[in-house]
Design a protein around this nucleic acid. Structure first.
Length: 573
RNA sequence: GGCCCCGUCGUCUAGCCUGGUUCAGGACACCACCCUUUCACGGUGGGUACACGGGUUCGAAUCCCGUCGGGGUCACCA
């Protein structure tokens, strides 16, 4: 299947305009898996031709996200070990990336001479020409076409200018773009996933190859680079299907090979629309509108990005997006959880990288029967062993966060306490520093107490929150107090006083001893365990939910446990 | 709107290419029960799908056509 007998080279070519999107991660994963499966090379190329939106920081972030997922590249920008996000998938130590075949640079912004050389050839052979319309001119023409109910296509007005004059004006430095003279012939694309896709010449217009700023457009950059960098297989989302005829047509004009194409189904959100960053703003906006908020909630009101003017403008305009930090501060302040859309969102939400790669691999792909009956849980080596383009489906997939969560829960449940602690620590270092600062023995004990009942690393961290309450000023949930302390003529309070005595004189303040004491207390009172455990839980945490109560008390230690019971008795007794 | 792609449980999918072994298998979600010191986990059981309509065929989820539905795309963004 590889064209000729060249070794397979796949590439993932993100444009560095933000975080790595979950859909992009799947594209990268499939490119990676295909290369691994066939002993080929996987390359990263940064498509930073949009000077206004691209940033080096974004490129580095995307690289770090890929490495975190466990997707390594054979060729491309290098990423040093210390630049990888903590807690990522195990990858060989050292530097990822490099240039074994000598096809660098990997940033398109550094390949301008290559594009310009190719462009000269194209202009020379009459396949491309300079055009001088401004963006405003074109916009007007588009509007006019729309008003007339007609399909807009570039009218080739520039071709009416005699070639010598065109070239002279371009040479003289008049601002212009270079357009491709699209041949008047249909193009048939052979796609591994979709089959043959035929596009007539009336569908293709003379698209731009080089922008007025001298940078190539996506179409031109891709075609030039895939050829010069020896790419054999192009895997990308179906939203690119219509670009492919353009690329094939260009390849012919340039005498280039056409790589094998595979267009993958799209990933949708719960609402059945494309997953995008906007969703996060929409979620927050909807919430604020429902609450009838006129300005940001007090603690965050007026903080950067959340001043009254910005907030109300954002609230009214669906197209507006809050600055990332502002949006997240707002959400965390009001306890709203934003839908995750980028890999980093998922990382911070406490998902494990191997779970994410497993899950997204299943969006549009499934293992062959030979790999086992109904296999659904698998790791990267499995994917590298069994991945085939032929098994990529055609139908768009909805991203089901509940299923992802179930996968993550299973993965955490399958870990030993020690392994969990080892994996949890780096996450806490970046996302829950208070926990990471705990003494190692206490951290490990907390990890063990919290692991079996947590679905994500973040949830585990939240479960440990009780440790950081002020012993003397715990906020008691009124309903919990009523039900567990005051009901039945203060039965809970009696249990609390009784267990306090026992706790004070317990020789060893270990979970097992505490557990035994709770049992004794309960049986002495002639009640079930819950009648003792729950009041104690309310006293220690203010709520009815916490890790196992014996572990909770042991983690707190005798002194703080007694202090909290006394404070509770004082406040509610 | 033009062009194109897609259409199996609520969701992700297996099966479709090479019609019968499938009154359609798995997973998540859901419901019920069990377990239980909270919250979770876990266990057992359950309901739910071949979009619709025509063909072809002894026989269709599987092949063909149409309808409807969903999506993509129509930039000096990628």
């Amino acid at each position: 299947m590889p064209p000729n007998d060249r070794p397979i080279v796949t590439r993932f070519a993100p444009s560095p305009t933000g975080h790595l999107h979950i859909g992009g991660a799947r594209t990268a994963l499939f490119c990676w898996a295909f290369a691994r499966r066939h002993g080929g090379a996987f390359m990263i190329r940064i498509e930073d031709t949009d000077q206004a939106r691209s940033s080096e920081a974004s490129a580095r972030g995307i690289l770090a996200d890929l490495a975190w997922l466990g997707i390594d590249w054979d060729e491309g920008p290098t990423l040093a070990e210390h630049d990888r996000a903590p807690g990522g998938a195990p990858l060989k130590p050292g530097v990822i990336g490099g240039d074994p075949r000598g096809v660098a640079p990997f940033f398109q912004s550094q390949r301008l001479p290559i594009y310009n050389g190719l462009l000269d050839r194209l202009i020379e052979s009459g396949h491309a020409y300079a055009a001088f319309e401004t963006t405003a001119d074109l916009e007007a023409k588009r509007k006019a076409a729309a008003a007339a109910g007609k399909q807009y296509r570039y009218d080739r007005a520039a071709l009416d200018i005699p070639k010598p004059e065109r070239d002279a004006r371009a040479r003289a430095g008049e601002p212009h773009v270079v357009r491709f003279r699209t041949p008047d012939e249909p193009v048939v694309v052979h796609d591994i996933v979709l089959g043959e896709v035929r596009v007539g010449p009336e569908e293709l217009d003379d698209f731009v190859l080089r922008k007025a700023d001298g940078f190539p457009t996506y179409h031109f950059g891709v075609v030039a680079d895939d050829q010069t960098m020896g790419v054999t297989h192009v895997l990308r989302g179906q939203e690119h299907l219509y670009n492919t005829p353009k690329h094939v047509s260009l390849q012919r004009a340039l005498g280039f090979r056409t790589p094998v194409y595979a267009h993958m189904p799209l990933i949708f959100n719960e609402q059945g629309t494309k997953m995008s960053k906007r969703e996060r703003d929409q979620t927050a906006r909807r919430w604020c509108a429902e609450k009838g908020l006129a300005h940001a909630p007090d603690p965050v009101r007026g903080t950067p990005g959340l001043d009254d003017a910005a907030f109300s403008a954002w609230l009214k305009d669906k197209a507006k997006q809050l600055e990332t930090h502002a949006l997240e501060r707002l959400a965390s302040e009001v306890g709203l959880s934003l839908p995750e859309v980028s890999v980093d969102d998922f990382r911070r939400a406490g998902f494990l990288p191997e779970v994410i790669t497993n899950f997204i691999a299943l969006l549009g792909w499934s293992p062959p029967a030979e790999a086992g009956e109904n296999v659904e849980k698998f790791d990267l080596p499995f994917l590298a062993k069994w991945f085939e383009l032929e098994r990529i489906g055609k139908t768009n997939a909805r991203f089901d966060r509940k299923k992802l969560l179930a996968f993550n829960t299973d993965a955490m449940g399958g870990m030993s306490d020690a392994e969990f602690a080892r994996r949890w620590r780096p996450w806490c270092q970046t996302d829950a520093p208070r926990l990471a600062a705990l003494p190692p023995e206490q951290f490990d004990a907390l990890a063990a107490a919290v692991r079996p009942r947590s679905k994500t690393l973040r949830e585990a961290a939240q479960s440990g929150g009780f440790l950081f309450l002020d012993d003397a000023a715990i906020a008691y949930d009124p309903k919990a107090v009523e039900k567990n302390l005051k009901a039945d003529a203060g039965e809970g309070l009696r249990a609390l006083r009784s267990i306090r005595e026992g706790l004070a004189s317990l020789p060893s303040f270990e979970p097992a001893a505490i557990h035994a004491l709770i049992e004794q207390t309960a049986s002495a009172m002639g009640v079930g365990l819950g009648k003792v455990a729950q009041p104690l839980r309310v006293a220690l945490t203010g709520t009815t939910v916490s890790p196992p109560i014996d572990a909770t008390a042991a983690l707190l230690g005798r002194e703080r446990t007694l202090a909290r019971i006394d404070a509770c008795l004082a406040a509610n007794g």
